[in-house]
Nucleic acid binder design. Structure first.
Length: 475
DNA sequence: TTTTGAGTTGTTCGA
DNA sequence: GTCGAACAACTCAAA
């Protein structure tokens, strides 16, 4: 019966190196059938920008798998039905996959497992997404962590579950006859009219080999200064690995392991703690399945949110009149990604200055980020809004002018993404409405025409936000 | 059980 | 220009 194949169900783990499900499927000695299922009705199915990234990552994974001797099968359907159907039509003796951590996804995996095992098909699941699974890290009292620092101390002391990454697989036996597969092109993941992703390819090189190169480049060029320079909007001192991590084109263990080999523990600390933040977010999502929709701190249900459509649109388009906010939002639209510091500034502006519900911002990010990740997106929006775990204190309201001056001192970041302000001197670029008439004229800027006046007065908005917090405190 | 110390990323005000 | 305190009160984690 050795010719009965095993199925590897790929989800957010689109890689052949350090992929436990794939590795142990191959270890069985049986032919391996790799499958990716597009389930449009899945809760939190990928957004538009993620689909661009997904297209290229699947293409790359398919090529990598083909070079080993098997193929990637694509199916578009209800994921539960599709995996059961595939198991039946191929006579598979086992189904292997890496575990997920969101309640609605876990429910699917559990149901699939029950049905398959009922039909005599063995199901094996693995940890391919996290350094440690949520239930491995517990407080002294036995509960999940809700504060980052003790979580991080515990993870750091414990280290990853596995010592080192599993090797990249060179040879994987495929079945004699491959099951039917959709064509990736037919899924129409790439935008055409309009092609809003035309600049993405200048910035992103999807695929496992590119992820490895990006990691190596970061280790050589940037990690030494990461702690000091990572906040600079006008410099390239961040890893830009988030799109790879979001789809599992690279895994956290590969990053952890490479970082520890490349630099001292002290130099690794800050960057690895950011990797740990991802773990913390997954931990929060696992224990709070409604994290994407509902505030963790329940009193925030009564926060006096405003829901101004016009202001939300201005924010999305990068037309708020605050240059650093607009630069961030336009970077997001043009490249599918935003610098971490810019995300905080833009998110704080939406939630605190405009008092628009964090769920609105989260939804926009979900659709426009190439690195959209359910756990990170939900936990971090809640953090900014003040309603999350270990949240930012209510009085921490970013001043978009001060943040711009501090983290984009020459204004180069603004110039790159808000070209209509490119000729303004650095002195005025973060608050163009304070520039003298002559300076605006020389720079070709007409406020209200070529670039908007601020849609809100920050100082007043800050007071209003503080009053909002005082209101829910009284409840 | 009780106590104690601490908690990603900031801003403003006044000395 | 620089510096420290205030901005609340609460929850978490560990002793």
């Amino acid at each position: 019966m050795n010719y009965r194949p095993v199925i590897v169900w790929f989800r957010n783990d689109l890689r052949i190196e350090d992929n436990p499900a794939l590795f142990y499927a191959r270890e069985t000695g049986a032919p391996v059938i790799a499958v990716y299922i597009l389930d449009d009705r899945l809760a939190w199915a990928p957004g538009a920008a993620s689909r661009w990234q997904l297209h290229h990552s699947l293409k790359s994974l398919a090529q990598d798998l083909e070079s080993t001797g098997t193929k990637l099968i694509l199916r578009r359907s209800d994921s539960q039905k599709a995996i059961l159907a595939l198991a039946e039509e191929t006579g598979a003796r086992g189904v292997f996959f890496n575990r997920r951590y969101y309640g609605k996804h876990i429910a699917i995996d559990d149901a699939v497992t029950a049905e398959l095992e009922g039909a005599g098909v063995k199901v094996e699941t693995f940890n391919g997404l996290l350094l440690r699974e949520p239930w491995e890290l517990k407080t002294g009292a036995g509960g999940p962590y809700r504060v980052f620092t003790p979580f991080w101390r515990s993870l750091r002391a414990m280290g990853p579950a596995r010592q080192s990454p599993l090797p990249r697989l060179r040879r994987i036996k495929g079945p004699k006859r491959f099951p039917k597969s959709d064509r990736l092109e037919d899924w129409a993941f790439l935008p055409e009219k309009p092609d809003w992703a035309k600049e993405f390819a200048d910035v992103w090189r999807p695929g496992e080999n590119s992820a490895r190169k990006r990691l190596n480049a970061f280790l050589q060029e940037s990690i030494a200064n990461y702690a000091d320079e990572r906040d600079r909007l006008d410099k390239e001192h961040v890893s830009r690995l988030s799109p790879c991590l979001a789809l599992g084109v690279i895994g956290p263990l590969q990053i952890w392991s490479a970082v520890r080999k490349a630099v001292s523990e002290a130099q690794a600390e800050k960057f690895l703690s950011e990797v740990a933040w991802r773990e913390f977010c997954y931990n929060l999502l696992y224990y709070n399945p409604d994290l994407p929709e509902a505030p963790l701190r329940k009193e925030f249900a009564d926060y006096p949110w405003r829901n101004d459509r016009k202001e939300l649109t201005a924010w999305r388009k990068g037309l708020t009149g605050y240059p650093v906010v607009d630069a961030g939002m336009r970077q997001l639209w043009r490249t599918g990604w935003m610098h971490n510091r810019a995300r905080m500034i833009a998110a704080s502006f939406l939630v605190k200055d405009l008092q628009i519900p964090w769920q609105q911002g989260k939804a926009w990010f979900w659709d426009t980020l190439v690195d959209a990740d359910l756990a990170n997106n939900a936990a971090n929006w809640q953090w900014v809004a003040g309603c999350g775990a270990d949240a930012a204190p209510y009085f921490r309201i970013f001043n978009p002018i001060a943040q711009g001056e501090k983290f984009d001192p020459e204004g180069d970041y603004v110039r790159q993404f808000v070209p209509e302000l490119a000729d303004l001197p650095a002195k005025f670029i973060h608050a163009p409405w304070t520039a003298p008439k002559a300076a605006l004229e020389n720079a070709g800027v007409t406020l209200g025409k070529s670039y908007p006046f601020p849609i809100i007065n920050h100082k007043e908005a800050r007071q209003r936000a503080l009053a909002g917090y005082a209101e829910i405190k009284r409840v």
